[in-house]
């Protein structure tokens, strides 16, 4: 299979190195700033609010008055305990603040990832098997057109059109406040709030899967086994999905993994547009209030989630396709 060659499997060691680089960047950048470490990490605004006792405690916990090497060790050690610092704006430990917002982001990203891969695959199969015909040209042009829009702008357009103009969808939030829904009503309410952000994400993000499936379909349809299937008299749909589509599925799964990082960043921007109470809105807020430890914590958590998902997909991938494990 020629398609397989274009995919490179990453070994877990690379993930370890990547994680190490990320942690080091996280550690070094605040300390490049002028002023003593506590001021540099927390920012002037935070220092005005934090009590002297708390400042001293933070200094002690992260060994901020020690040499850099010891600070780094203390930083890694506190990370292992899940201690990401203290958010002055929310007046709580960073990890606790983040864990309140994380589920919404996971819900949005998970659904968007699933739906965009599924629809991208389906459209790619249909379009690739009709190469050069009207439907293929329309789909290709249309999807390429949408992929040019940044996610947050698509979000803004949907918000303006469906939210402001037609008043069909809520303008912000993930739940109707104080409605006290339960059971099925709660699910409907959540989906109602989710619809626009999800549509915006799927519209922009299905491109990569679509293009990948389409070009893999074109290659696969030229193979000999497709001719055999046609010669046997298989119906067109069977050839399309069971013979060709199944073979293009593997690169598509990997593409979904690679896309995941883009999808997560897209989600951050979309959440800001829709004031969706996930990590994106929290990040925006922490940037506005200059709550630096919270910001660094959010970005670290997101990176770790992205790396974990990619690692899992990599492992899963060599399980699905033994050929990949052999090329290592």
């Amino acid at each position: 299979m020629p398609v397989i060659k274009t995919i490179k499997k990453t070994s877990p060691v690379n993930y370890a190195v990547a994680l190490f680089i990320i942690l080091t960047i996280n550690f070094i950048i605040p300390r490049l700033m002028p002023g003593d470490p506590l001021q540099a990490i927390y920012g002037n605004e935070a220092l005005l609010v934090l009590t002297p006792e708390l400042q001293e405690e933070l200094c002690r916990r992260f060994s901020l008055d020690r040499p850099l090497g010891e600070q780094y060790a203390a930083y890694l050690f506190s990370l292992c305990r899940g201690d990401l610092g203290y958010s002055y704006f929310y007046n709580a430990p960073v990890l606790k603040v983040i864990s309140g917002f994380l589920p919404w982001t996971l819900l949005l990203t998970g659904l968007a990832s699933f739906l965009s891969t599924l629809s991208g695959f389906f459209l790619g199969v249909e379009s690739g098997s009709r190469r050069g015909r009207a439907l293929d040209q329309c789909l290709l042009g249309g999807i390429m057109f949408f992929s040019g829009f940044p996610d947050f702008f698509v979000g803004i357009i949907l918000l303006l059109f469906f939210g402001v103009f037609l008043s069909l969808a809520p303008l912000s939030g993930a739940l109707t406040p104080y409605a006290g829904h339960s059971g099925l009503m709660l699910v409907i309410d959540i989906l109602h709030h989710l619809a626009l952000p999800l549509t915006a994400l799927v519209m922009v993000r299905l491109t990569a899967t679509y293009l990948m499936t389409r070009s893999a379909m074109i290659t696969t349809l030229g193979e000999a086994f497709i001719l055999t299937a046609r010669a046997k008299g298989c119906p067109e749909r069977t050839v399309r999905y069971r013979h060709a589509g199944r073979n293009t599925l593997l690169p598509v799964v990997t593409a979904a993994g690679l896309q995941f990082a883009h999808l997560v960043t897209g989600t951050l921007f979309i959440e800001i547009v829709f004031s969706y109470p996930g990590l994106g809105s929290l990040l925006y807020n922490s940037l506005l209030t200059r709550d630096y430890p919270l910001m660094a914590g959010i970005l670290l958590i997101i990176t770790i989630v992205v790396l974990t998902i990619n690692l899992l997909l990599d492992i899963l991938y060599s399980k699905i396709d033994p050929r990949v494990a052999q090329c290592m």
Partner: peptide
Amino acid sequence: MRLVDALIIIPPVIVAILAAAYL
């Protein structure tokens, strides 16, 4: 190439936000 393989996995926008916010 090991370094490149590791850097490729790092989501660029997220690290850029972090660095840009401080610097």
